[in-house]
Amino acid sequence: MVEIIISVFLVFMVIGALIALETTDLLSSVISIGAVGFALSICFLLVGAPDIAITQMVVEVLSLVILIRATIRHDLTTIDGDRDFFGLMATLALIFALLLLGLPAFLSLPPFGTPAMSQMMESPARHYLSGGLRETGAANIVASVILDYRAYDTLGEATVLFTSILGALAILRVYSRKKKS
C-alpha cells in the first residue's frame, strides 16, 4: 500500500521537476520546485521518518523564500532554450546511457521493504534500536543517533554549514577595503 502511494507521489515529483526545468518563467519554475519539495516531505512522512518530514518542510519554505527574494527580482527576461544542438544531443545520449547502465543496478537491489539491517545478524542499526533508550536515555532514536552515537557527523555538519555561510558572506561583500597604500 505504501509502495503504491509513494509511486504516485514519485510520478508527481517527476512531472513537477520536468515542468520546473522546462517552463520559461522563473517564478513558476521556482514554485514547481516547491511542489516537488512538499511531495518529498509527504513521502518522508509515509516511510516512518517524521523528523525528516518536519525538517524538509520548513527548509523548503525557507529555500523558496531565498530563491524568490534573491533571484526573481533581478532578471525577468526569459532565457529559454538549451545549449547548442550538438552538445545537447551528446549530453542527452550520455544521460540515456547512464540510465541504461544504472537501471539494472537499481533493479537488483533487495525489494522495497527489506532494509539492510534485517539481513545481517549484527548491525549497528539493530544495536541502536534495542539499546538506544538504555544507553542514551532519548526516546527518539534518531536524536540519539545524531547527537550521541554519531555526534562527529553533526560536528562536521555544523562545520560545513558555518563554512558555506562564511563563503556566501565573503562572496557578497559590498564594502571594499579603504585604499590606504
Binding site: V47, G48, A49, D51, I52, T55, Q56, V59, L62, S63, I66, L67, A70, T71, H74, P115, A116, M117, P124, A125, Y128, L129, G132, I141, V142, V145, I146, R150, D153, T154, E157, V160, L161, S164, I165, G167, A168, I171, L172
Partner: peptide, 30 residues
C-alpha cells in the same frame, strides 16, 4: 521500527543543502 541510520544522515544533509543553496545563489548574484 525502521532503520534510523539513513534518517540521521539525511537529516543533516537537508540542512547542509540549504547552506549550499544559499552559497549557489550568492555566486549567481555575483
Amino acid at each position: 521500527a525502521v532503520d534510523p541510520v539513513p534518517q540521521a544522515l539525511v537529516l543533516t544533509s537537508i540542512v547542509i543543502g540549504l547552506g549550499i543553496l544559499s552559497l549557489m545563489v550568492a555566486i549567481a548574484i555575483r
